[in-house]
């Protein structure tokens, strides 16, 4: 419903017919390598890169259903970071 600074938030009700437009828009963004979210003159541009952690969570509690999709990735540092050699880090557990 609103967004500010580096975040964007939208909430709405959809039905099976209309919701696919949203899924398509996100899917298109991943294909093109950039997701653009705009609201009230504010822009949030996300460039999915590297490894993207995907979480799919489906839950049923009585008649209440929740299906959550989460994507997480880390943005590379800009500027000198592009040229600088970054040390290779191998670690176990969550990478965020």
């Amino acid at each position: 419903m609103s967004s500010s600074g580096d975040s964007f938030k939208h909430e709405s009700l959809q039905d099976c017919e209309s919701i696919t437009k949203y899924i398509d828009a996100l899917s298109e963004g991943f294909t093109q390598g950039a997701l653009l979210f705009m609201s009230d003159g504010q822009r949030v541009v996300l460039k999915p890169q590297g490894l993207i952690k995907l979480e799919v969570e489906a839950k049923r509690k009585e008649r209440q259903i929740r299906l959550a999709l989460k994507f997480r990735w880390t943005e590379e540092e800009m500027g000198s970071g592009d040229l600088a050699m970054k040390p290779l880090v191998i670690s176990s557990g969550d990478q965020e």
């Binding site: 419903m1 939208h10 709405s12 437009k21 828009a25 298109e28 609201s39 009230d40």
Partner: peptide, 15 residues
């Protein structure tokens, strides 16, 4: 006040 929804978009999808 937060109900005053502005135009939004996700990629080519306009709300």
């Amino acid at each position: 006040p937060r109900f005053e929804r502005a135009a939004m978009s996700i990629g080519s999808l306009k709300m």
